[in-house]
């Protein structure tokens, strides 16, 4: 059952891509900001976890738990002090500022951690697997996928069931009117980016334990996240999960045919969706 195995691995890999994408999607949904440094922020979080694990000797999961509030604060400050200044009708300033930020983070990490490939060790969990019917699935990939589902459930609950979520949606629809109702859009944006950074930390935990990463790994993560969002259709987190899964399957199937084709077949799947369904498979947002 080689093909079934390949597809199951692809689905589980898709969970990782959905985690990459969820933070990007959240930020775009609320303030129409595309953060070109998103991938680099994931890699930054992975290095924060790595630093905590190596200096304190804690497990990666505890490391991620400790990194999450740090990343939340960093995201909040980044949005409040820097990115809020760039928001407006013109899309040029936010794109160029986040592009500059991406270069700054990459080179800062290169100075701080050198260009070596790193990995966060998850101990015996790394090789553990359980039988799912006819195929074996690794515990870590399975946890990645379940975390992605959990993150999406939590975000949906937050956005559609709570007062903060109502403020998010109101600010997304019309920041000026939301402001009249006592919401401070600047703070809502900062809160959203902080939240996105918590999701980024979860993504970084699985990025770091699953495979090697280096300071320049960021842009590729941004591209996978972006592809998952476009395949799934803007505005729907479940669509993003589906997009991630399609991307993951395309990559593992490509890799099964020829290991050099893994990334390429992922991109081609994305282009095919763009060709036939330009608004994605499960579009929800109007814009």
């Amino acid at each position: 059952m080689n093909w079934l195995d390949t597809i199951v691995q692809g689905v589980l890999l898709g969970g990782l891509y959905a985690l990459f994408a969820a933070g990007l999607s959240l930020v775009f949904g609320i303030m129409r900001l595309v953060n070109l440094a998103h991938g680099d922020l994931i890699v930054l979080a992975a290095f924060v976890i790595l630093a905590l694990v190596t200096t304190l000797g804690v497990s990666p999961f505890v490391g991620a738990l400790m990194a999450a509030p740090l990343m939340f604060a960093a995201g909040w400050a980044l949005q409040y002090f820097l990115l809020n200044r760039t928001l407006g009708k013109d899309i040029l300033p936010p794109l160029l500022v986040t592009f500059g930020l991406s270069i700054v983070i990459q080179n800062g990490l290169l100075e701080g951690f050198s260009a070596d490939s790193r990995r966060v060790s998850a101990g015996s969990l790394e090789s553990a697997s359980i039988a799912l019917g006819p195929v074996n699935a690794g515990i870590m990939p399975l946890m990645t996928f379940l975390s992605a589902v959990a993150v999406i459930v939590c975000l949906n609950q937050l956005i559609y069931r709570t007062a903060v979520g109502r403020a998010f949606r109101a600010t997304s629809d019309d920041p000026v009117t939301a402001g009249l109702m006592g919401i401070r859009p600047q703070r809502i944006f900062a809160l959203a980016t902080g939240l996105a950074m918590v999701v980024v930390t979860i993504a970084a935990l699985y990025l770091g334990t699953r495979a090697n990463f280096e300071p320049t790994s960021g842009p590729a993560r941004l591209i996978y996240a972006f592809e998952a969002i476009i395949i799934g259709g803007l505005g729907s987190l479940w669509g993003t999960l589906a997009g991630g899964v399609i991307l993951g399957i395309a990559q593992t199937v490509g890799a099964a045919i020829n290991p050099e084709w893994q990334i390429l077949t992922g991109h081609l799947a994305f282009l095919l969706v763009l060709l036939f369904k330009p608004r994605g498979l499960f579009p929800r947002a109007v814009d």
Partner: peptide, 18 residues
């Protein structure tokens, strides 16, 4: 200065844009 140079360039770019 290697990567410091790119880091500086990125910072200058951000400051100019702002």
């Amino acid at each position: 200065y290697g990567s410091w140079y790119l880091l500086m360039l990125g910072l200058i770019g951000i400051l100019v844009m702002l």
